[in-house]
């Protein structure tokens, strides 16, 4: 194995595309994954080298850290607010254990990473949600970290680039979770009113209370190909309306068609696109 292959090798199964498809042992001994879209098997190292996308264009889910490694200029990531952890504000049964296992499995303290970085040479504040931490759900810690990030960006007059990946508000923190929608929206609004730029990128999945708050509040909203994006769960919509859902319902492309997304942003070229958009909004940073 060459040194390049070694560096590009995923460290665990999550980094190689997550649970949506389990890797299988290929002929040459390297684990492979079969694409749910084109059914072709690709070795993990190959997937990893092409930002967790299949040759056919299918975008696998990935961890927040993996996304950061593709996105941020090497060595530029500086993580913020790492001390913010979840509380159990309503003493929800089993929540403590659920948090512990989420931490253990994802190796993250919470469902969002916040910090500063440069992307293609452009400085910005960055948040990346972690779909493998309780499906990226927003409780008080996620709400608090995001709010602090927008406040930090306001204070330092920085643009914010954010990657949403969330099932919505976190049920286990009850009304406290719901209120994070208002709290984060307030912080986004203040940042916006100061003439600062927020680029929101919707990745798989962006639903519920996250769609209904900060993720939909970007000056520009991008979405990754094929990502599930919507408010109500598709199954709930189907059960409520007793109608067959239209093809491609609640996908990034559906949101583009209906006018709620500015553009589809495949991972290939995404970094350059973000850098370009940040550069175009440089002027907004003048006080």
């Amino acid at each position: 194995m060459s040194i390049l292959n070694f560096l590009l090798q995923p460290k665990n199964e999550l980094e190689a595309g997550g649970r949506s498809a389990l890797p299988v042992q290929g002929d040459e001994g390297e684990p492979e994954k079969t694409c749910p879209n084109c059914h072709r098997s690709l070795p993990l190292s190959r997937l990893w080298a092409q930002q967790n996308t299949c040759d056919c264009g299918h975008h696998y889910r990935m961890t927040a850290r993996q996304r950061l490694s593709y996105l941020a200029d090497p060595g530029s990531w500086r993580e913020l607010f790492t001390d913010v952890a979840s509380l159990d504000p309503i003493g929800f049964p089993g929540y403590g254990e659920k948090l512990s296992s989420a931490r253990l499995n994802s190796k993250e303290a919470e469902a969002v990473l916040c910090g500063t970085a440069s992307v293609g040479g452009q400085d910005c504040c960055l948040y990346v949600m972690e779909p493998y931490f309780m499906m990226g759900s927003m409780g008080t810690a996620v709400g608090e970290k995001l709010t602090r990030l927008f406040e930090y960006a306001l204070e330092h007059r920085k643009s914010v680039v954010g990657f949403a990946a969330s099932g919505g508000a976190r049920m286990q923190e009850g009304l406290y979770s719901l209120m994070q929608m208002a709290k984060t929206s307030g912080a986004v609004k203040r940042h916006s009113d100061a003439g600062l730029f927020f680029l929101s990128v919707l990745t798989d999945p962006t639903t519920g209370g996250v769609t209904a708050s900060f993720a939909s509040e970007g000056d520009i909203i991008l979405a990754e190909p094929g990502a599930t994006v919507g408010f109500a769960g598709a199954r709930v919509v189907e059960q409520t309306t007793r109608k067959a859902l239209p093809k491609g319902f609640q996908t990034a492309e559906f949101m583009l068609e209906h006018g709620f997304v500015d553009a589809i942003a495949p991972r290939r070229g995404q970094r350059a696109l973000i850098a370009k958009l940040l550069h175009l909004h440089e002027g907004g940073k003048q006080p």
Partner: peptide
């Protein structure tokens, strides 16, 4: 909860 509500941006309206 409905197809039309999603098509017309329920999440965006609340946000």
């Amino acid at each position: 909860c409905g197809i039309g509500a999603e098509e017309r941006g329920q999440g965006q309206a609340i946000a």
